[in-house]
Nucleic acid binder design. Sequence first.
DNA 1: GTGAAAGCGCTAACAA
DNA 2: TTGTTAGCGCTTTCAC
Lengths: 333, 333
Amino acid sequence: MVTLKQLAKELNVSISTVSKALNNSEEIGEDTVRRVKELAELYNYKPNKVALSLKNNKTKTIGVIIPNILNRFLAKVLFGIEREATKQGYNIITCISNESLKKEKESLQLLASGSVDGFILSVAEESQINNEVEHFKRTIQQGLPIVMFDRVAHDVMCDKVIVDDFDATYNATKALLAEGRKHIVFISNINDLSVGKLRERGYNKAILEAGTLEPTVLKIKKRDDHQKKIKSLFKKNKSIDAVVAADSSSGIISLNTAVNFGLKVPKDISVIAFASKSDSNHTLPKLTTIRQHAKVIGANAAKLLIDRIQNPSVGDVKTKIVKTSVIRNKSTL
Amino acid sequence: MVTLKQLAKELNVSISTVSKALNNSEEIGEDTVRRVKELAELYNYKPNKVALSLKNNKTKTIGVIIPNILNRFLAKVLFGIEREATKQGYNIITCISNESLKKEKESLQLLASGSVDGFILSVAEESQINNEVEHFKRTIQQGLPIVMFDRVAHDVMCDKVIVDDFDATYNATKALLAEGRKHIVFISNINDLSVGKLRERGYNKAILEAGTLEPTVLKIKKRDDHQKKIKSLFKKNKSIDAVVAADSSSGIISLNTAVNFGLKVPKDISVIAFASKSDSNHTLPKLTTIRQHAKVIGANAAKLLIDRIQNPSVGDVKTKIVKTSVIRNKSTL
DNA sequence: GTGAAAGCGCTAACAA
DNA sequence: TTGTTAGCGCTTTCAC
């Protein structure tokens, strides 16, 4: 990489002259500016980012800590973050916590020593289970802003972007009741997460409000054989006529299993799930989905963070709710 | 963030003494070392990464340019890269080219100005279609090593990690022939990519070798309605008794469509697809898959790159082939 | 055993 | 209009 020094030497001027010329300073003579720019162009000079970071005490880089990149929703949020960040001239350093508290702490530590201007993250499962938040508080106190999305730690004062999980599930369940469904089950493999719990509560509320019905909840653990669990639920409860799934996998498997059992979807049974567009393409009939607008969530998180980086003085933290929307396909009436 | 300067001031010693003490230099007195370390501990001192980068002309950061983070295979490779990089003390800056040549060029440019020590990337679709490779060559010439994986540009001299696409599809097709299948179709929505073409060729070779059979190839475009395309193929060709899918989506939709048409899988029709474990869980019966070992690919790419960063002098480039393996499930005999 | 100084690449206040 | 200097945080050589 060519540096200002080398350009200066070759042009027989000082380093600062070169710097000013390239930054269109009024101070420098037209002629010099032209000469400098030509040579810079020739050598494809680009200012060294690291030097700038050191000088400005700004890296123009955002640390993103994602629990699991193989989760479609999280991957999509990352996509949204990356796009917005790039648009605003920021890079993103990605760390994957793998749902581990230890890795989350380490990533935070490592990047906090000058590598980034702030963080966007979704709390790791282990951290949520243990309700560990000290590492977040410490980072914020160090002067590095954090924006949390989806899985947030409520007792940490920072900007947040969340989804209307409770309302969405409540409304979805109500809609199934309105279809005339009598035995609506809730299936989830994310019950350890804050969002999973919210979704369950939304379902419960709707069921209990209906008066005569009892909630049926199937919680699937990571280690379980998802297909087996769902199959056996269906076998035991022949009366099931609707499924609310807290995650795409549960939704897809429920629908496929129902079809496999000879049930007609949506005549005999309705399925609705938190899932994305491509998920709904992977079932026949296409799955009715609750969309979380992951990209929008990502973009919002990036906007909030960059805003805070650029205006560190503003005191009050914001919580942005990105509303879900229901895309009706053929798996519901 | 606390700096050496602040520590030095508080301890009434010089900056260099503090630096040496923290780096366990023999020069410094035991007593001083202890005092320095205690204070550093107290203030949670961490050396500033940016300053170190500037000094050492090494960022310990890898630039990763991924065409599409929503592609499960690519996301998994990213996971593998991240894990290996972290293990070796490197961070990754992630850019998403979104299959665009322009974005790919920009990301390369941007990060090449000091932000990273090298690149891992998979070539964007647009770049492959236009056979654009100049930007890669320029970057390498600048002294920044590149490792390409999966979709590689053959005429760029750099380390590569690829999959045995041709052989894998050839063998899969042979296996279906061995089952006694007579009308095997090839379905792909990645035909513009180098890997897609290789897979098609593997299929063709096996079919033609069989002598009496004709290849049937369905190429799906991004914009197409995948379900519709596949349904109409099945309608037109009642004799289809096996599918080789170049991507997971084509595989899943094929299987579901067949089931929907009342065909028994695998009695009436076999399906095999390039896909991952979780994909195979999303069909009933479970999909027989060709696994690409994405995480291994990622880890290998990271190893190759870090190796080259640390030994820039070594001349010859390597190409690592990560063999696929077939996981037999219930969608084949 | 400790400290001063130079230098990584850049910008900006100040001098000439 | 151009150049000198200091400084961002750190390491390292060389004096003391």
